[in-house]
Design a protein around this nucleic acid. Structure first.
Length: 491
RNA sequence: CGGGGCGUAGCGUAGCCCGGUUAUCGCGCCACAUUUGGGAUGUGGAGGUCGCAAGUUCGAAUCUUGCCGCCCCGACCA
């Protein structure tokens, strides 16, 4: 038989890899730690990208593009920034190859050494702020609201498909503002856009919060994030929005004159989400039969499979389906008619389930007699006979219903897996048991956070934005605490 | 870089301990026929540097040594 998927319970990592490889989202590549995104996976990314891009533009942002290479000296201008990234940078040292004098193929030409090495961007703050210096002189030049869609490289020691690859695709927004408050507002606005995208488009509930100092972005004053919960009880940071204060403006000497003709450094933000979101999508919704995609971003929302004996039946079905396809497209539904004769219906059913297509419609001679079709939904595996009259409308309603149902299911799971712990014993018991988010008191120090991480492998995912103030004692040290924070083991 | 495992056809594998005909099986692939309401069946066919190199031997996928590569665990991971 075809493509068996390892059970989620048996081996979660294997299950995750199986889904990605067998649904045709991506493949391993010849380069260690890198990944080939296949057409189906890329179509999914494009849908996500287009929606995010629309949301960015609706809030006044524009796209631009900055170079892949960053001069080494730029990276070290902001102390915390270089500290955070130095250990995972790919470095270009030469610009030419030559034939090996010993005849062993091709070698790097030692005469072609670069005077200053170039870093393949792990993120673009430095090269962008070096540019902003030339763009900004006056308050009239502000705000600068720019985003770029690009690839970045971070040489991680261990990689996982979509979640952590050496090279990945993302967007990074970099904004410059006249006041601290305006920059903070921008940071929070973008966090809200990410949360809205995750919940309404990916059907994935997230917790908005702020990072502890340990988990903060290298060079930021504050890092805001959205955190999602995966089905194995581990958390996944799904997007970040940073308030950078004046750190980069000072590092790159970006000053502006305000209305009173006073000179000040500009205030900055940066924010990003990546193809990691696809990993999140896989782990949030899929089951042992394959991927489950939310209709709003599924590359194929509806697949129609004909079932027939002989050319005559096929022609009758084709005729009927032709009308249906028009109806679907008129409602903006992404539909595919799979009448490929190489595969049998059963094979197609299994294949589209694996690919997570939300709705499947089977049309056979029997259905045409009854003026109906068989409609199957991916999320619940329910099948029922539906009248051909008004089919596009009923499918449209069904797609919305599936979107909502997937979200609700993930939300219930997430809410059931936020557990309060008041003692260290409880804390460990939850992490080793059902896992998920553990809401617990912490004394607010980096030392305690480190110690907790060392002892439990759990980190502070975030301090939720809507947190209730509550007096308590740190689960590790017993020192006083003003609020609970969310801990979890994370990807 | 430390601990463990693996390398045989596109993929997954048997054989290795205990050397000996033509390297096993499944999936996939190609052709033809019959099929098509949950991953079809039959018949025929193609496809192999047994990771690489050296050694032992009459003879190596199998034994020895060295090297290379991959996976898992750890270190690392805004």
């Amino acid at each position: 038989m075809g493509k068996e998927i390892t059970s989620r319970k048996e081996d979660y990592s294997q299950w995750y890899n199986d889904i990605i490889l067998k649904a045709g989202l991506a493949d391993y590549s010849a380069v260690r730690g890198c990944m080939v995104i296949k057409p189906y996976g890329f179509a999914l990314w494009e849908n996500m990208r287009d929606q995010l891009d629309k949301m960015f533009k609706e809030t006044g942002h524009q796209n631009a593009y900055f170079p892949l290479f960053i001069p080494k000296s730029f990276l070290s201008k902001e102390a915390a920034h270089v500290e955070g990234f130095a250990k995972e940078c790919a470095v270009v040292t030469h610009y030419r190859l030559m034939n090996d004098p010993d005849g062993n193929g091709i070698v790097v030409d030692p005469d072609a050494k670069l005077e200053e090495e170039l870093i393949v961007r792990p993120t673009s703050e430095t090269i962008i702020w070096n540019t902003y210096k030339t763009w900004i002189q006056s308050y009239r030049d502000l705000p600068v609201l720019v985003n770029q869609w690009c690839n970045v490289v971070r040489w991680e020691m261990r990689t996982r498909l979509f979640l952590r690859t050496t090279e990945f695709l993302w967007q990074e927004g970099h904004t410059a503002h006249a006041t601290s408050q305006e920059a903070i507002d921008e940071t929070i606005q973008m966090l809200n856009i990410y949360a809205e995208f995750a919940e309404e488009w990916m059907a994935m509930p997230v917790i908005k919060g702020i990072k502890s100092i340990n988990e903060r972005f290298a060079g930021a004053v504050d890092t805001y994030c959205i955190e999602a919960l995966m089905q194995d009880g581990k958390a996944l940071q799904s997007g970040t929005s940073h308030f950078l204060g004046q750190n980069f403006a000072k590092a790159f000497d970006v000053k502006f004159s305000d209305k009173e003709n006073k000179l000040d450094y500009v205030w900055a933000t940066s924010w990003g989400v990546s193809t990691r979101l696809i990993g999140a999508l896989v782990m949030a919704h899929s089951d042992d039969d394959g991927l489950v995609l939310p209709p709003k971003i599924a590359p194929i929302q509806v697949v129609i499979v004909p079932i027939y004996k002989g050319d005559e039946q096929k022609q009758n079905i084709d005729e009927k389906v032709k009308v249906l396809l028009e109806d679907f497209k008129a409602l903006g539904i992404r539909v595919k008619y799979d009448d490929d004769d190489n595969n049998r219906p059963g094979w197609k059913f299994a294949e589209y389930e694996l690919k997570g297509v939300p709705v499947r419609i089977a049309v056979g001679a029997r259905d045409l007699q009854n003026n109906s079709v068989e409609v199957a939904r991916r999320d619940t595996r329910e099948k029922k006979s539906v009248s051909i009259d008004g089919l596009a409308n009923s499918v449209h309603v069904l797609l919305n219903d599936i979107q909502q149902n997937i979200y609700d299911k993930a939300k219930v799971f997430r809410d059931d897996n936020i557990t309060k712990a008041d003692t260290w014993e409880e804390f460990i018991k939850i992490l080793d048991g059902k896992a998920g988010f553990v809401s617990a008191h912490w004394d607010g120090t980096a030392e305690t956070e480190d110690k907790i991480k060392e002892l439990s492998k759990a980190t502070i995912r975030c301090i939720p934005l809507n947190n209730i103030k509550e007096e308590g004692k740190c689960i590790l040290t017993g020192n006083p605490s003003r609020e609970r924070v969310l801990f979890a083991r994370a990807y």
